[in-house]
Computed example of a mutant assay.
Amino acid sequence: MSFGDEYEGGSGRGRGGRGGTGRTRTRLPENEAADTYGDGFGDGFGCPARRPPRTSRSLVTVVGVVVLLIAAIAFANRQGGGDSDGTAKAPREGAAPTAATGTKPVTGKNGTIPAGFAQDEQGAQSAAANYAVALGSAEMFDKAKRDEILAAIIAPSRLKHFQSTLDKAYSPSFYEKVGLKPDGTAPEGFAFISRTAPIGTKITSLKDSRATVEVWCAGLFGLAGEGSTKPVTNGWFTITMELEWVDGDWRTVTHSQKEGPAPVGGDTRASSAEEITDAVTGFGGFTYAR
């Protein structure tokens, strides 16, 4: 039977059937027939082939476009609307504006680590963001480089504690778990990747020479290479850092980390190991500033 062609029945004679000569025909629009009754067999059976269902990629693309449109409309309304007196609304309490302040974030560097942050809210957030990058870098897996990083960002009164604690943490057994050699180097033919990228900062306490800052981060971690059993993956986490003003700069006193907040994963095709390696080695990092 073909719903796209005709239906024969009732008391009449169908094609090759028995009975009277009555015939009833019901025709449906071509698109409706294809959408509703298509059975995937194609025209050979008189039924139009069923259209392939939308893939998840198409759905994510559509949702992404909708989100962008909504964001664009909201931005336009904020730019052109505002209050009746023409002033823009203040940002939600608790979230600092992302616009540039015009204040230089640092005045120098300590080795490869930015240094000379201001003794204020902006300076504390900038310091925490840059220190999070250093503590999440691949250099932390090298004993000599790790000691240099710690000497640059840890308060002198806490330096020995951090060094001894991290020396125990970065052990041969830990290296083995992440796919590295016992000395912390990558196996031949592989590139070890560990990179942290701050998404935003929030200061939760600031009093005299002490500050507590939360840094929301995204990170990459793993071994890039053909046949890697520890491929590079991404993660989301929040670092809480207590800072102390020592000798004209912010230094880290305590450091802790928790998972999230993590967004829903997108529908982006995973890149090859070679592409990831080229990206990490080819794209440099930043000095982060509030």
Rank of each mutant, 00 (worst) to 15 (best):
V246E: 04
A90V: 13
E121M: 11
I239C: 04
M241W: 01
A155H: 08
G22I: 12
P48E: 13
T229K: 15
V62H: 14
E275H: 04
E214H: 05
A74S: 11
R57S: 10
V280F: 15
Q125R: 12
G116K: 05
G248D: 13
T252C: 06
N77V: 09
G265W: 00
M1D: 10
K109L: 05
V213E: 03
P114E: 08
E139K: 13
I113A: 06
I239Q: 14
K202V: 08
P52A: 03
G38S: 04
K104L: 15
W250D: 06
V60Q: 15
T233C: 00
G46A: 05
A132N: 07
G200H: 02
G86S: 10
D39Q: 03
G19M: 07
A289F: 04
T21S: 11
R269N: 11
T212F: 00
A132H: 09
M1E: 11
T240K: 11
S137N: 09
Q119K: 15
W245H: 14
A118F: 02
L206Q: 14
K181Y: 15
A197E: 13
G42C: 05
A151K: 11
R146C: 00
K109Y: 00
T103F: 00
D249N: 15
F283C: 03
M140L: 09
G20Y: 08
T201V: 09
W250Q: 03
A270R: 11
A262P: 05
L69W: 10
I203A: 04
P53T: 11
I199V: 08
T26A: 12
N130M: 09
T103G: 04
L223V: 07
K207F: 10
V280K: 09
F221W: 05
D85H: 03
K207N: 09
G102C: 08
S194K: 07
C217W: 01
G222H: 08
F141C: 06
A211W: 02
D35C: 07
Y175I: 06
T165Q: 12
I276P: 04
K109W: 00
G38T: 03
G189P: 07
K177C: 10
L206F: 15
L166P: 03
Y175S: 00
K89F: 15
A115R: 05
E188Y: 01
V67M: 14
G22S: 10
A186D: 07
G86C: 08
E226K: 14
S2Q: 11
R50W: 10
L223R: 06
E226T: 14
E176C: 00
G94V: 02
A96C: 00
A118G: 14
G284C: 02
F162G: 04
V67Q: 09
S271F: 06
F41C: 02
A71V: 13
T24C: 10
K89T: 09
I203K: 05
I70D: 00
I153A: 01
G9E: 01
A71T: 11
D249W: 04
E139N: 13
A138H: 04
A152R: 05
R13S: 06
A96Y: 05
G111H: 04
V264A: 10
T36Q: 13
L243Q: 07
S194C: 06
A74F: 12
A124V: 01
S11N: 02
W245R: 10
L220S: 09
T61F: 13
V215C: 06
A191C: 02
S272Y: 11
F286L: 08
A132I: 01
